[in-house]
Design a protein around this nucleic acid. Structure first.
Lengths: 219, 219
DNA sequence: GTCTTGGCTTAAGGAAGACTTAACATCGGC
DNA sequence: GCCGATGTTAAGTCTTCCTTAAGCCAAGAC
């Protein structure tokens, strides 16, 4: 994990560099804001530790400029204790805040908190050839075209798509649309299938006479 | 946005409840750890504010149990000033902590920081095409024009915007505006949606019949 | 070939859900 | 405690989706 440390105080910076290095981080230590911004363009860092009191420019300014391009985790260091400044820092895009003087252990803890996110962002998108089903958006795309489906149609297609290539018995599809108990002795299911075929493609859903339906997986 | 507040001190808790409510949050206030854990199973909250000094169990224990199941943003409140305790809190899974006594504005700022992290967003300003939402200032801009929204309207829009492009089920929006207990058997939600559409744009919020709503992301 | 069975197609009717509007309640600031 | 702003309730209208039903078609059995 590579960290960019921006701090103009030599002894404090050195102490942090050593401590971070000891923790296993790779550290790039810069002393001013413009160098920092240039370095951040390289896009190689996992986090930024930023002192607000820099010789050339205000740390908050660095932060604002950074935020136009990156979403890098940022921990801000500051000597200012005024509440207003702290709030400005937080709302301005810092992920966390440490007041000087601080204990190194605390800085490290906050760094851990800030960097340990970003995993587990799964996109629940089901793709089968020209058919894309986005469950989160409740949206369906066919050959790049957005298709609008009713609730039942969507549920039906989703179930078929989840087991694409497998036969789903009629009974299961019916109990999916309606509760197990409430029986619909009509052809509602077939009508929905019909609509799906019309909106998508005729050959996408295959009928197994007397058994059920199957979604054709693309070749 | 719905917050679970866990705090045993009556007056402090009440103060926070009022302040949070005024910000537009829906607040569920519980006084002990076991109730909190039970409530957290419902999965309806956007964040947790947790006092570490609880009557029945240690707050850190609550945190540890919570972390086995959820990745909910957590802000910890503590009277303890010992560094060790703070670190234990952070490494134990808290996203941030506030030392008592604290200023409410700071708590709110930290809450904002913590809740917007899940979306990979770093800045207090959320921009979606012509729509700009300033979370800290409670201000909304549409095509450069400032729009004035009520608390509920703002909360609703914010929630939709945070998950822009995704369907938010009605049930979630309802429990977000009103707690579980106070059930609204009326169409308040729809009325708010109506007002938002009127103030912004008709096509911005898409209805998914029988499911929920979705904020359309700009092309 | 024709009969039967199950599926397809179509259109109409109905009902659930959403929209709109306005009046009524509630909250917060002065 | 009053007033304005904000939220909620309620009623009527509208719309979309779902179901129903009736006739047609295709496949397999005889």
């Amino acid at each position: 994990m590579r960290i960019l440390l921006v701090e103009d105080d030599p002894s404090l910076g050195e102490g942090m560099r050593v401590a971070l290095h000891r923790e296993g981080y790779t550290v790039d230590w810069l002393r001013n804001g413009s160098d920092a911004l240039a370095a951040l363009d390289s896009d190689a860092f996992s986090a930024l530790i930023l002192d607000l009191g820099l010789p050339d420019m205000d740390g908050l300014e660095v932060l604002a400029l950074l935020r136009r391009r990156h979403t890098l985790p940022v921990v801000v260091l500051t000597a200012r204790d005024a509440l207003v400044d702290r709030l400005r820092g937080l709302d301005g895009g810092a992920d966390d805040y440490v007041l000087k003087p601080f204990d190194l252990a605390e800085l490290l803890a906050r760094l851990r908190v800030v960097t340990r996110r970003g995993e587990g962002r799964r996109c629940a998108q089901l793709q089968l050839g020209a058919l894309v089903i986005d469950e989160a958006r409740h949206a369906v795309t066919w050959q790049g075209q957005a298709i609008s489906l009713g609730r039942r149609e969507f549920a039906l297609l989703l179930e078929l798509a989840r087991h694409a290539g497998q036969v789903i018995p009629r009974s299961r599809l019916e109990s999916l649309l309606y509760g197990w108990d409430e029986d619909v002795e009509s052809n509602a299911l077939e009508v929905h299938v019909h609509h799906l075929r019309k909106k998508l493609d005729r050959s996408l859903i295959v009928t197994l006479r007397g058994i059920g339906y199957r979604l054709e997986v693309p070749a």
